[in-house]
Every structure is written in structure tokens, then in C-alpha cells.
Design a protein around this nucleic acid. Structure first.
Lengths: 216, 216
DNA sequence: TGTACATCAGTGAACGCGCGTTCACTGATGTAC
DNA sequence: TGTACATCAGTGAACGCGCGTTCACTGATGTAC
């Protein structure tokens, strides 16, 4: 008895049969692909339809507009963050802490590598004030920020982290750092900072902030 | 004898007289204002012209297209980063280090508050692969990243920072963190993290990463 | 297993709108004498 | 100081294009008996 998935409906409220669901999927995949290759500024309904080899009219059977398709992609990407988030709930004490931090960063960067274009677009829309995108973003990232803040708070109670730090702010800062590094790591690689060096540096920093840096 | 400023020319190479320079300025200001109020996705030549109370034809006397105007704004914002960058070159040793870190973060956030929309748009274009925007971004941020990396390297030589850290990567990480926090701080404030708490937390983190955390 | 019918899914073609862009022109400003 | 002329700056109006969106229709699929 799994959770009953919230069923996906057409904009007019009709249910989708098998074939329709496949078409919807192809439209979403094409949207993601175009976001990668040409960016949001060039994203057009007509283009998405063309990519799938269908008519623009088909698009409107599944989405009210382009935003709605992108939002659906952002939701999907959001669900996958769980595979990254579970590292946060791992062991942070002692030497294992570094291993956990490293896995978290590596996972986060892989996650971004897969969903780069969608996440970037989601973040833009969120920054430009679209409530729906803001909400997915906060909800998704809180899967990491919240438990991470808990760890910081715990370390603080254990006297390992100075009181000047606000746990939630520190967690948000770490996520901010990871997001930005994940988004721009090609830039650094082009400037001669190899990915392993970057991961290692971030590992030490996060470990330090979350646990105070002790490994014994 | 000041530096001879690189003169701004019209797209066709003509020089600009006084009146023309004023018009160009008004067009740029309108572009920035529209970026704030409606975002890149809604930014149109016609709209900019309308805002200034002029005809679209006028716009083309100064810019080849909208991108070129936004790029000019990004350049301008880039020049102003110097007021933030000078903090990085300040005193990091001893108790003064915390003061320096705090000033840096505060300055960085103010800088973003002023140029929010332009910087966001610059970063989007950079991420989507536009070389010109990439270049301004890297050049601008290096005014902070480079000297900051130097400080980290120095601390490392002094044995205050562990060797596992790559100075440039650490500096980039700190800038990444600041950029992201500056971009999204309203979000945190909405979630109950007051700005001073955020600044203080970032201060401690940056100070720790750059100096190893010693204050004596 | 076959057939008739109901529903689902996809589409061709068209409309209108708004935008980017240009050109030939007018008006404003500067300057030489 | 005044005038004539050269250059600079701004614009009205128009064109064409590509996109968003819709509608009436066709074709595909599922199902009842």
C-alpha cells in the first residue's frame, strides 16, 4: 500500500491516460533539453512542440503556459534532493564527519550537474519574485538546511561551535556556498582549480562549521 | 592628470556629445529600473524607450540590442565593487580580523542591495554561457577573490589554516556564500533570521576560513 | 473473437498582437566669421 | 553680437516576422456486449 500519488491532471481537470502521460513526459523532457541548450530567454512553446515533433496545440493540453512546465520540472528535481539530504542525517561526530561532509558535497554537485538548467531557472524565477518558484526552492532546500541546522545546534550545545553563530543562518550559508559552487564550478575548473581540490576545500569548511572541526 | 577614460561610442563609432550622453544614461537607468520591477524575461527595447519617453529608434542609436545595455550596467556595477574589495586588503590578524570580516560582508550585502537586479541578470547570462557576461563577472569578483585567496595562503604558511584547503577554492567558496546570501537574504529574513544574526554568522565563518579563527 | 460506440489524444490552420528594427526626415545645438 | 551653416540627436511611421493561443476537426484507443 504505497502513498496515493497526487494524480497529474490536464489544465482543464481531465485525467490523463497512458498515452497522454507519455506525451506530457516528452514535452517536459524537451523543455529541460531546451533550457540546457538555449536558456530560458529562448524558451518558447512553439519550440518545445517542434522538438517533440508535435503541434503547439498539444502543449496546451498539458500546461497552461511555459512557466507551468518549468515549475513541474522544478518539482521533479526537488523530489530527487532526498538522495542528497540523507547524507546530512548521517554521522558527523569524529573522523566520520569528514566522510559525511565529503559525500554531501559530492552528492550536491552531482545533483546540480544533472539538473543544472532547471535549478538555475527555478532560482531566477524565485529571485524575480514568482511565489510558486520561491516556494519549491525553499521547500526543496529545507530538506538539507533544516537537518543541517539541527547538527550545528547540537554542536553548539556540546560547546564545539561558538555561540556567535546562528545555526539556521550557518546552515543556510553552507547551502548557499554549495549551490553557488555547484552552479559555477566549471568556471573554477577553467581557472585551474580541479574539482577534487574544490570538493576537499568545501569539505573542510563545512565540517568546520557544522562540528567545530574536531575529529576525535 | 587622471586616467583617460575609455570613451563611450555609439554603435556606429560616432562620439557622443553632452546631450547624447544624458540620453544614454536615461536609457540605462530605465533598463535597470525595468530589470528591478519586471525582470529580464519582460525586458523589451520598446518598453525601455517608453519608460524614458522616447522612441525605440533612439535606443538603437546607443545600443545594438538589450543585451548590450545590460552588459553596460554590469560593467558599471563591476567598477563599484572596489569599495567592497578594499576591506579584503585590510587587517585580518588578531581581533581586527573580525572587524574586517564584518565590514566585508556588510559591504558586500549593501552592494548587492543596490545592484541586485543587474547582478542577478549578469549571473544568469554568465551561467547560460554568454562569454561577455562571464568575463565581467569573473573580472569583477576577482577583485575580491584574488586578495582573499592571498590572505588564506598567508594564514596557511603561518600554520593557522590546514593544508587540505586550496586557498583560491576557499576564497571562491566564501565569495559564493556571500553572493548567494546577498541574493536571497530576504528569504531568510522572512523565515525569521534577522539580518544582524546573518551578518554575524557569516563573519565568524569567513574569519575562521581566512585566518583559522585565532583572535590573539 | 468481433463489432459498434464512446472517449481520449493530437493537430492543421488560422488569427491577431506586439515586438524588433529601419529609414527618411525634422528639430536642436554648436561654431566660424 | 548676430547670422549662416554644419553637425548632432531624436523621431514618426511603417514593415515583417514569429510567437501565443484557439477552434473545429481527425485519428487512436479502449471497452461493452
Amino acid at each position: 500500500m504505497g502513498e496515493p500519488e497526487t494524480e497529474i491532471l490536464a489544465p482543464d481537470g481531465r485525467r490523463l491516460g497512458r498515452r497522454a502521460q507519455e506525451t506530457r513526459r516528452r514535452l517536459l523532457d524537451a523543455t529541460a533539453a531546451l533550457l540546457e541548450s538555449h536558456g530560458v530567454l529562448e524558451l518558447k512553446v512553439v519550440e518545445i512542440a517542434r522538438q517533440v515533433g508535435t503541434s503547439p496545440a498539444t502543449f496546451y493540453q498539458y500546461f497552461r503556459d511555459v512557466d507551468e512546465a518549468v515549475l513541474a520540472l522544478a518539482e521533479e528535481a526537488g523530489e530527487e534532493i532526498e538522495t542528497v539530504a540523507r547524507w546530512v542525517r548521517g554521522e558527523w561526530r569524529g573522523a566520520a564527519g569528514l566522510v559525511t561532509a565529503r559525500a554531501l558535497i559530492d552528492g550536491f554537485m552531482q545533483y546540480w550537474d544533472v539538473h543544472r538548467a532547471v535549478l538555475r531557472t527555478r532560482n531566477l524565477a524565485a529571485q524575480e519574485g514568482d511565489e510558486r518558484f520561491r516556494e519549491v526552492r525553499v521547500r526543496t532546500l529545507s530538506a538539507i538546511t533544516d537537518p543541517l541546522a539541527d547538527r550545528v545546534a547540537q554542536s553548539q550545545r556540546d560547546g564545539l561551535v561558538v555561540p556567535a553563530i546562528t545555526p539556521y543562518a550557518a546552515a543556510a550559508a553552507m547551502v548557499a556556498m554549495m549551490e553557488r559552487m555547484a552552479a559555477f564550478h566549471y568556471e573554477f575548473e577553467a581557472r585551474g582549480v580541479a574539482r577534487p581540490a574544490m570538493v576537499e576545500t568545501l569539505t573542510v569548511i563545512i565540517h568546520q562549521v557544522v562540528t567545530g572541526g574536531a575529529t576525535d
